[in-house]
Amino acid sequence: MDPFVVLVLCLSCLLLLSIWRQSSGRGKLPPGPTPLPVIGNILQIDIKDVSKSLTNLSKIYGPVFTLYFGLERMVVLHGYEVVKEALIDLGEEFSGRGHFPLAERANRGFGIVFSNGKRWKEIRRFSLMTLRNFGMGKRSIEDRVQEEARCLVEELRKTKASPCDPTFILGCAPCNVICSIIFQKRFDYKDQQFLNLMEKLNENIRIVSTPWIQICNNFPTIIDYFPGTHNKLLKNLAFMESDILEKVKEHQESMDINNPRDFIDCFLIKMEKEKQNQQSEFTIENLVITAADLLGAGTETTSTTLRYALLLLLKHPEVTAKVQEEIERVIGRNRSPCMQDRGHMPYTDAVVHEVQRYIDLIPTSLPHAVTCDVKFRNYLIPKGTTILTSLTSVLHDNKEFPNPEMFDPRHFLDEGGNFKKSNYFMPFSAGKRICVGEGLARMELFLFLTFILQNFNLKSLIDPKDLDTTPVVNGFASVPPFYQLCFIPV
């Protein structure tokens, strides 16, 4: 058959498939802009700032609406009420993970971030239990974070109060905490193996944040037939998995079943207990991918939040002064901060919360999916439909947070200066898919920041009023603009 005829037939089939998918069930789905064949609503979305586009569309179609990214149908949730109703009140029905062709290629359905069903539930339950087990290797997770915080302070001392970009050092600290939990080992910041790991993690975040990856996920045929950065992403992930597998083999040879040292040991012990169960989800494949998931999810998000926190503290020296006064009063100079201190430091706690609220790190979270046909607000959402959640619409709700575009710790303080919780605080998402490392991340943010401010004054290279804190939105995360500062020993 003539190649031209084959091409026309293929394009015609794709067009018909697109029209059929977009028209099927439209009477039951939430409203939304009319999609174009094949490309859907992509032309109506700013790929570099999806969150802003969703906010604009919500003003037209309401808090629940339908979009098509290519052939992929998505239902968008915008605003606290619908997000709570879906992710919390109907948590089980909305607990699936959205379709990610690239991740599915890399992870093969294993791990904790992109798995679904029984596998996801069992691996998540085990990971939560293990991360909360403060007795691994007779050292609590808090001990590990405190140790890394001391190392971080010593690295900052080496800058000798000269101007520096904190990106690298602030990236090393949370990565080392995860390494300590998974591998029972922290690395020197100049260790070549550690630097290679950091390089792969950072490069992957840069790649994932590009519009090209959005295109690959919406048109998965590209993955096999086109060159691009997605190939580098898959190569980096394969490198990390190979490295983790080597460490798993080392653990198998040296493990003491009665004295687990780290996450890998705990997983291997669980595998041993379930070795007679042919349906067990505790396999080497799941261990390797879960460890890679924890490394990827637990490094860049925390380091970016820390980097943004220091920029905001530079911009608002009056806030920094209040935090340091609270540190001096509650902790002093002669001991290290600990998590028990947080309950006695409402202002510092409010500042950490406000940093996370203000920066809105992951504006749309990772997409969910419905696990069955769901009736939601008089609409029928078919099983498997991807759910896109606007966390921006919750964290920047102007009824809950007056002047949401302003950095103001009073958003989390009552009139008496006591810490005030808010149900709208969802930087880790909400419901059954809430970030498994939430507790660890909150511990790291509090301890790293208090250790830094206990030991250093922060000095800006320019007038604080002239510092730009506008986030650089890159399609996946909101990151701070480049800046330098000086760490002046107190």
Rank of each mutant, 00 (worst) to 15 (best):
K200A: 12
C372P: 00
Q356L: 12
T55R: 10
W120N: 14
L294Y: 05
F401M: 02
A161Q: 12
M129V: 15
E300L: 10
C338K: 13
N217C: 15
R357A: 01
Y225I: 10
Q278T: 15
E122R: 14
A86G: 08
F4S: 11
V436I: 15
W212F: 06
T159D: 01
F448G: 03
D191N: 12
P427V: 10
E72A: 03
K273V: 09
A321C: 11
T469Q: 10
P63H: 07
Q22H: 13
T385S: 06
T130P: 04
K138F: 07
I213G: 11
H230E: 04
N258W: 07
I387E: 00
S115H: 03
Y424T: 08
M345V: 03
N176H: 02
M426Y: 08
C435A: 02
I452V: 15
C151G: 08
T66R: 04
I257H: 14
F376T: 00
K465Y: 11
P402L: 12
S365V: 07
M198K: 07
R433Y: 03
L131S: 03
E246Q: 11
N107F: 10
P227K: 12
G439T: 14
S180R: 06
F446D: 03
R108N: 10
V5L: 15
L366E: 01
H99G: 09
L43M: 05
M345I: 04
C175D: 02
V352C: 10
V370S: 09
E274T: 09
S393Q: 01
A321H: 11
P480E: 03
H396D: 04
K235P: 04
G79D: 06
G62E: 01
T304I: 15
V5G: 14
S18F: 15
K421C: 15
D256Y: 05
V323R: 00
M271S: 09
V355E: 00
P317Q: 10
N196R: 14
H411V: 01
Y379Q: 02
G475F: 15
T302R: 00
D408I: 03
P402T: 15
L294T: 02
E241N: 11
K247M: 09
K232M: 06
D89V: 09
C435K: 00
Q252Y: 10
Y308T: 06
C175H: 06
L485A: 13
Q324E: 09
V472A: 12
E241S: 11
A369G: 07
E142P: 06
K375C: 06
S51I: 03
G296H: 14
E415V: 08
R186K: 07
Y225P: 05
N116C: 07
E203Q: 10
D262V: 00
I289Q: 13
V288A: 13
S280M: 06
P3S: 10
I45S: 03
F419K: 04
E72Y: 09
I141W: 15
E354K: 01
D256M: 08
A297R: 09
C266Y: 15
V370Q: 00
V82L: 07
F183G: 08
F226H: 03
F407N: 00
N176Q: 03
E154V: 09
S422D: 02
T348G: 01
A292E: 08
A161V: 07
E354F: 02
A297F: 12
C175Q: 06
L294P: 01
Y68G: 05
M255D: 03
C338L: 09
Y347V: 05
F451C: 15
L14R: 01
R157K: 13
K249Q: 13
K275C: 10
I362N: 10
N378K: 09
Q276T: 13
G96V: 05
C151L: 10
E285F: 06
D408L: 05
R119V: 08
D293Q: 06
I88P: 03
K432T: 13
M136C: 15
E142I: 06
T386F: 05
G25T: 13
N277M: 12
L366R: 04
A291G: 08
I223N: 07
L152K: 00
P37G: 05
S18K: 15
A321T: 14
M339Y: 13
Q279P: 13
F126L: 07
S303P: 01
T386L: 09
L9G: 12
R125V: 08
K235Q: 14
R124P: 02
C10A: 14
L312E: 04
R377Y: 07
I257C: 13
E438I: 06
G91Q: 12
I244C: 05
L461M: 11
K200I: 11
T167S: 14
E354P: 01
P363T: 01
L245I: 13
G439E: 15
D2A: 12
L461G: 12
K375I: 13
D2S: 14
F282M: 07
E400H: 09
P174H: 08
G25A: 15
S280W: 04
P471L: 05
E444A: 03
S393A: 06
V490N: 15
P402D: 12
V76L: 02
E281T: 11
S23I: 09
E274L: 08
D2F: 09
H251P: 00
S18C: 04
E104G: 06
V83A: 04
C10M: 15
F267A: 04
I141P: 08
E81T: 08
I47V: 13
T159L: 14
L388E: 00
E274G: 08
K138M: 14
E104S: 11
F487M: 05
P260T: 05
S127R: 01
G298M: 04
N457V: 08
A297L: 06
R150P: 02
T55G: 10
W120A: 05
V75R: 00
L201Q: 06
L9A: 14
T364N: 15
P409F: 03
R21W: 11
D191Q: 07
V6Q: 06
S365L: 06
I112R: 05
N474Q: 11
V288P: 01
C266E: 15
T299W: 10
I434H: 09
R132Y: 14
L380C: 12
R144Y: 08
A106G: 09
P427Y: 02
L131H: 03
F263V: 04
L156D: 00
L11F: 12
Q484N: 11
I284P: 06
T469K: 07
S365C: 08
M198S: 07
E93Q: 15
Y61N: 02
F194R: 03
D262K: 00
V153H: 00
C266T: 10
T290R: 01
D191Y: 03
I222E: 03
D165V: 03
K160N: 14
R144G: 08
F263H: 01
D143K: 10
S390R: 02
K459I: 08
P227L: 08
R105L: 06
L156I: 13
R157D: 10
A291D: 00
P382V: 04
F110H: 12
M443T: 15
G431T: 02
G111F: 01
R206P: 04
R105Q: 07
T130L: 09
R139Y: 14
H344K: 13
